[in-house]
Design a binder for these strands. Sequence first.
DNA 1: ATCGTTTATCGTAGATTAACGATTGGAGGG
DNA 2: CCCTCCAATCGTTAATCTACGATAAACGAT
Lengths: 110, 110
Amino acid sequence: MAAKRKLPEMCCDVSPVKLPPDETAETLAELAWAMAHPARVRIVRLLLNRKACVCGEIVDSLPLAQSTVSQHLKILKQSGLIQGDVDGPKVCYCINPPRLQELKRLIASL
Amino acid sequence: MAAKRKLPEMCCDVSPVKLPPDETAETLAELAWAMAHPARVRIVRLLLNRKACVCGEIVDSLPLAQSTVSQHLKILKQSGLIQGDVDGPKVCYCINPPRLQELKRLIASL
DNA sequence: ATCGTTTATCGTAGATTAACGATTGGAGGG
DNA sequence: CCCTCCAATCGTTAATCTACGATAAACGAT
């Protein structure tokens, strides 16, 4: 059981609530959501480890069907965290550093 | 999220053959998912701004119904990012700094 | 032109989320 | 005891996610 604090208003801050219509909340949520799946985290890490772009090797490195991986890549691409360049029949994905930086900055400044 | 509490409940030992290929990927995804909604981002920020805990003021600061905010609070609590202490008829929420640190560390080390 | 490879998209099924109103339960005050 | 206030939970609906197989599209090579 929580002990009873009899101290008046010790727990809650009663100063007026003023929360700016945070546009960055949307951005942060968007970026966080892109990382909100283990497979996508692993994809991002894979692309960071080998700094060059990788193509269908991503599929081989994950226990998921090719179409599923493609979905995750699409989500990451839409978030701006990665980008894909067509190279013949293959597609090479790589990190989009500025966008990743933005995620890092938004999280770090929490 | 694939990572749910779908624990076997079996009597037999179901030793996980697949040891987490990347346990931190699960953790990061879990924490990122907790922040993957603008309302939850704003709640976390609100709790950080006034370092003390806030109760139902959170509801007033968001354009959402009380029950919806309660759901988001539950999600944040389950992620470990915040905690709630009952104080009389009210509940005061506050940040759980170690867990937030973990999120920051995992993102920063990407 | 056709084949094989690589990747994206379609269609689907099941699970999960987000939102709300309504209800319940607990704590305190009268 | 009754009543009010606060927060959590229930029950529902609509939307979205995740996963897969199957199919289509693009490309290089034969």
